[in-house]
Design a protein around this nucleic acid. Structure first.
Lengths: 187, 187
DNA sequence: TAAAATCATACAACATGATGTTGGATTAGT
DNA sequence: ACTAATCCAACATCATGTTGTATGATTTTA
């Protein structure tokens, strides 16, 4: 039976794909519903059966990229990466690399970076439930600092024409986290 | 023949102010030219004498906030802040606090964060002209990491309802930069 | 299992509102 | 009083979001 569902799922996906191929090229404010449906080969009205607006499509894509972070492996704290699941971060970023590169880039959506950070925070905070409240508040700031830094450097890396090797970046981040920025600047 | 500079400057500013008061409340995609001119008390057509679009107003505001960073004091490297002008950063952020808080926030503009970073980078890179090329490439990554972290934590701080004291944040950032994240997590 | 009834999908067409432009009215500077 | 600027009213164009309908697939009934 379910032929209907397949059709709608396909139509929806076609619209999403058309949107994305436009979004990679131009700012969202210049993308019209007409553009999308023309590219996907549907009537403009059909769009509204699936989405409420152009921004709704973006939202849909973003939300589909966030849940994969619930799949953050239970944060082990091996001596190598005290409390910060850098490896896990790496893996997840790479999985959706093509989307993250755009969404976190300079013509991306700042709300996405926030969503991303906020979805990761609870996992890490969970490790520090025993800490006193004062340290807890400071933790919020440290987390924001670190996650911003991670997202920043990964996004930068994604968008390089000639990026440094995976392994090299990996080690650099480790050093930055464990020894700070200053000690790395004068080597 | 004197252009009526004062009048036009005032009109332009009125439009900018009207835009900003709307921008603080809602996403830019929902702000129309009509909204702005109505709020500012002008005819809609007048808007186009000064700006080409709603986004052009935002761009204008952003650009007026960037040049102030050329005024970054020549980066002294006192023993306290090796290469990173944290104090200068603090001062500049605080000067335009109300704008930065919004523009760097989650309904802000990701392009602004990029502009900001890119305007600061050359100043800092200038200090490291003697370094070998390999270190130069790594420096780009370190800078992106650090600036993202700084912008992230400052923006977070701005948007807290009950922010920690200026001095405390200041010291925290120093520690994070000099000793890294990890050593701060387990105290 | 075949015909009838129902429902989901996609579309054409419409009303509304936003956009960007043009030509004219008004006001200030000399 | 003349000129040049500022601002506005009105227009054509375009995007939006909605409604009613044709098509064809699915389910029901007999």
């Amino acid at each position: 039976m379910n032929k209907r569902i397949e059709i709608t799922a396909q139509t929806k996906q076609n619209l999403i794909d058309a949107f994305w191929s436009l979004y990679r090229e131009k700012r969202i404010e210049n993308i019209t519903v007409k553009d999308i449906t023309q590219k996907a080969g549907y009537n403009r009205g059909t769009f509204y059966e699936y989405f409420t607006s152009v921004y709704d499509v973006l939202e849909h894509i973003e939300n589909s990229l966030i849940p994969s972070l619930d799949q953050l492996p239970p944060v082990s704290t091996p001596s190598g990466s005290l409390g910060m699941p850098i490896e896990a971060f790496f893996t997840l970023f790479n999985q959706n690399r093509q989307y993250y590169a755009v969404l976190l880039g300079e013509s991306g959506d700042p709300a996405f970076a926030s969503k991303l950070k906020n979805s990761i925070k609870p996992t890490i905070i969970g490790i520090f439930t025993n800490e006193p409240p004062a340290a807890r508040i400071e933790l919020d700031y440290i987390l924001e600092y670190t996650l911003s830094a991670m997202i920043g450097i990964m996004s930068f890396w994604f968008n390089q024409t000639d990026p440094i090797p995976n392994e090299k970046l990996h080690k650099l981040i480790h050093r930055l986290m464990e020894q700070g920025v200053m000690s790395q600047l004068f080597s």
